[in-house]
């Protein structure tokens, strides 16, 4: 233990800027993926609940497949395999833009949406089926009944578990460094290899992740308190 701590090196100058750039990328990749995975997860669950057998079969396969394979493998799969599985036009668009970032968003979104779909489904199951019935009886279509009656109630119930999915996603975004997304972990690693100040760099990065998690929890709790009206049947 005769390591000579040097915090200033990562809290000033170029290395500090790298960490901040990394944090910004982490925020971006997580934020975009959270929104997209919520949308995708909601769509998947709604399709699953239609009672149409083929849709049920497809969505269950999707969920089980992506929940039960490692995220790292999925990242590599999309990164190295996008040529093979995505349409040419999509690939061209990806290459023209930030390919690594887009693949990172794609992988995180699909992986997390599988978990979110299951959480939302648990919420839907806890809503009395009479809610769907009463709204269908007024002439609302299945999708409308879900959009305006069933899902808003289900979301309120599953907010705590959704928070943990958002936090998982934010932490999981560090894996995107393996495909070259220059997010927070990537930058800390970068500082380590330039300066051999790995301990300081990773400590600061860790603190940033913790702050980020706390902020996400806090925001959603505020939302929760504000909008969680008394739901009684």
């Amino acid at each position: 233990m005769n390591y000579d701590f040097n915090w200033m090196i990562v809290l000033t100058g170029e290395y500090r800027d790298w960490l901040i750039q990394g944090l910004v990328i982490t925020l971006k990749i997580s934020g975009i993926s959270i929104v997209l995975s919520m949308i995708l997860g909601t769509i998947i669950t709604t399709l699953r609940m239609t009672g149409i057998k083929i849709l049920e079969w497809i969505t269950i396969s999707f969920i089980e497949f992506f929940r039960n394979t490692p995220l790292l493998i999925q990242l590599f799969f999309w990164y190295f395999g996008s040529d093979a599985v995505l349409p040419d036009s999509v690939n061209q668009w990806l290459y023209a833009h930030n390919y690594e970032f887009a693949v990172g968003v794609l992988a995180l979104t699909i992986y997390t949406s599988a978990f979110i779909a299951e959480e939302i489904r648990a919420g839907i199951i806890s809503i009395p089926k009479e809610q769907l019935e009463a709204s269908r009886a007024t002439g609302l279509s299945f999708v409308q009944a879900y959009a305006y009656v069933v899902l808003p109630q289900a979301f309120r119930i599953v907010i705590p578990t959704l928070i943990s999915q958002f936090l998982n996603l934010t932490k999981n975004s560090s894996l995107a460094m393996t495909i070259g997304v220059m997010e927070l972990t990537y930058m800390a690693r970068q500082i380590e290899s330039y300066s051999f100040r790995g301990f300081e760099a990773f400590t600061v990065a860790t603190l940033m992740y913790i702050c980020l998690s706390l902020i996400i929890s806090l925001c959603i709790n505020i939302y929760n308190k504000k909008f969680l009206r008394m739901i009684k049947y």
Partner: peptide, 18 residues
């Protein structure tokens, strides 16, 4: 459309609580 022409009231009200 047909259901829109037929209103229904249930024993347990089934109002939307949210």
């Amino acid at each position: 459309q047909l259901r829109a022409d037929v209103g229904m009231v249930f024993q347990q009200f089934n109002l939307y609580p949210h």
